[in-house]
Nucleic acid binder design. Sequence first.
DNA 1: AAGACGAAAGTGGTTGA
DNA 2: TCAACAACTTTCGTCTT
Length: 309
Amino acid sequence: MGNNTVLEEINACPECHSVHLIRDYGRGELVCEACGLVIDDTYIDQGPEWRAFDSEQRNARTRTGAPADYTAPDKGLSTIIGWENKDSYGRSIPTKNRAQLQRLRKWQYRMRRGRSVEKRIASALPTLNRIASGMRLPRNVREAAVIIYRKAIEKDLLKGRSIELMAVASLYAASRQCGVMRTLDEFSEVSRMERREVGRTYRFLARELKLELMPASPQDYVERFCNKLGLGEHVRAYALDILRRAEEEELISGRGPTGVAAAAIYIASIRCREHRIQRQVADTANVTEVTIRNRYKELVDKLHIKIET
DNA sequence: AAGACGAAAGTGGTTGA
DNA sequence: TCAACAACTTTCGTCTT
């Protein structure tokens, strides 16, 4: 196999989907020209479009191997990369590709030197997988979580925190990154870590790793809550419409997103003649009826929504 | 009787001096 | 570090359907 190692390249910005990306060879990063997002290793597993190339034929579009598996302790890249700038036939590699090689070498260096890093990740994987499957989290979320966990270890952020705590926090961060929102309560339920601790660790991670995370928005919960309540498509659409209008009236910021989502769904369920009682909605959204009533009142008042009596 | 309503007191987290 | 504060919860009595 020799040096026939595969590198993936990203075509579009995962944030704004612009295709105008600038490669900063010095840092080994991609920068989005449109939104300025720095796309680093964190994003390698995102986006459906892959273009594979190897060092001999960099324009070949063929896939010559599996993508790096981030849930494997050694990242699934077991090929050894030599230190000469030559390919497997002994030809020298164009300067353009040397930066790529440099990045690969960096990883290998980390793998060798940081055997303990890999071992620590490996020991956390069972916990991570247990929680993730307990919550039915998709694979891409797990992979994103492993990447976050890896960074946490590399930055030595584990001290004084249990593996489980860090694993849960990583998963929570990853689920938010991937737009698969779950509440802190759900995470603490499955993991038996305290919600308080998970939240604190999550914020700590977000700050230290400079994770770009948007604050949770009510819209993120609508789909799942509606499904849980057995509500139809039109209710979902209506709830989202209410939320969109609520956004314009500044009725969302500063409020708990689950509460706002619950109230919007409650209203939508009445208006669409698929009435759900406050108790039901409150239970699925994990808020109290009182909260729903408060949000409900605000929404109905400010948006002039009429509820037939 | 079930559901909705809202007042009052308590909790945990954020913010700002 | 402490106090003020807003959001949310718990509890409970009352009104409506």
